[in-house]
């Protein structure tokens, strides 16, 4: 496989990783601030993380 494509995929995965990390971090902060809204925050977090994860996988499969 061509190197640039692989690097590109790697960059996408790094981006997705940072994105999911940020979502997780913000969710933790939000839960710490409002523990009574834990359920709602978790749901929103998982949805957002799943959407970003989708981009990551799209990149991986475009390569693979």
């Amino acid at each position: 496989m061509e190197i640039p494509v692989m690097v590109g995929a790697g960059l996408v995965v790094i981006g997705a990783g940072i994105g999911i990390g940020k979502i997780g971090g913000s969710a933790m902060e939000a839960i710490a601030r409002q523990p009574e809204a834990t359920g709602k925050i978790q749901t929103a977090m998982l949805i957002a993380a799943a959407l970003i994860e989708g981009i990551g996988f799209a990149a991986l499969f475009a390569v693979g």
Binding site: A50, L51, E53, G54, F57, A58, L60, F61
Partner: peptide, 10 residues
């Protein structure tokens, strides 16, 4: 489509 890819890929 993202649903199917996500499940498969994970």
């Amino acid at each position: 489509f993202s649903l199917l890819i996500r499940l498969y890929a994970n």
